[in-house]
């Protein structure tokens, strides 16, 4: 799955450093009231599915990563922030770290 590249300035729980990045679904974390709606007094309904997404550290940080090839980063991402990755060689944003 690819994390949406969307830049919003309202409350959301998607860390900036994985936006636009491709990972795989490691687990389903359950469904929760939508924090983006609740932050502004909404009901949080409908509930949103939360996915635990696994990213390879090397694919996130490239050769700057100091660690093992198998090292991973796991983040819970809400369903509406994910899209099918499609072509793995598709557009990818270099954050320039």
């Amino acid at each position: 799955m690819r994390v949406l590249e969307s830049m919003v300035d309202t409350h959301h729980r998607t860390p900036g450093y994985i936006k636009g990045r491709v990972g795989r679904v490691e687990a389903l974390s359950g469904s929760f009231y939508d924090p983006e709606d609740r932050a502004y007094g909404g009901s949080g309904l409908p509930k949103r599915e939360l996915y635990l997404i696994e990213f390879g550290m090397l694919s996130l940080w490239g050769l700057r990563y100091r660690g093992g090839e198998e090292d991973k980063l796991l983040v819970d991402i809400y369903e509406h922030w994910l899209e099918p990755a499609g072509d793995p060689a598709g557009p990818r944003v270099d954050h320039g770290f």
């Binding site: 729980r13 998607t14 860390p15 974390s29 359950g30 929760f32 924090p35 939360l50 550290m57 660690g67 093992g68 090839e69 198998e70 090292d71 991973k72 980063l73 796991l74 983040v75 819970d76 991402i77 809400y78």
Partner: peptide, 15 residues
């Protein structure tokens, strides 16, 4: 060592 896989969990959402 490199034989150990390090898994960082970023608890950014509700868990």
């Amino acid at each position: 060592g490199e034989g150990v896989e390090v898994r960082v969990v970023d608890s950014a959402a509700d868990l």
